[in-house]
């Protein structure tokens, strides 16, 4: 899976450079998030601007990251959610769980 990782002060920005976040690649994102929070990172932004498709496994990887963050008093925020991806968050009500920002700059500025 192609993920671009950048450090922005204390926050890690992960840009998912894939058109699909699905059962084929979601475990890699889940593992990346787990590694970051286990290493003591307390802020992560996952930017989904290039993702135009997400399935239940992709959603599950993000939920796993969210739980991992919460358990360590850290935060996981999302940005760049495209319309079809947004509709999946709404269908599963997960838009109530995540802090979702229009752009990664907005998400980074919120920390």
């Amino acid at each position: 899976m192609n993920i671009k990782r950048e450090e922005q002060g204390n926050v890690v920005l992960l840009q998912v450079k894939e058109e699909r976040l699905d059962a084929h690649n979601a475990d890699e994102l889940k593992q990346e998030l787990a590694n970051l929070f286990e290493a003591g990172r307390n802020g992560v932004v996952v930017d989904l601007k290039e993702v135009r498709f997400i399935d239940s496994s992709g959603l599950g990887a993000l939920v796993s990251g969210f739980k991992n963050a919460s358990a360590r008093q850290a935060e996981l925020k999302l940005s760049g959610v495209q319309s079809q991806v947004k509709s999946m968050f709404e269908l599963t009500r997960l838009h109530r769980v995540f802090d979702i920002y229009s752009t990664m700059d907005d998400a980074l500025a919120s920390f």
């Binding site: 399935d55 239940s56 959603l59 599950g60 990887a61 939920v63 796993s64 969210f66 739980k67 999946m88 269908l91 599963t92 009500r93 997960l94 109530r96 769980v97």
Partner: peptide, 16 residues
Amino acid sequence: ELLETGGRGIFIIRAL
């Protein structure tokens, strides 16, 4: 329940 990491696949199929 919203923080379950799995169990959404069949729900999504049924919903659509």
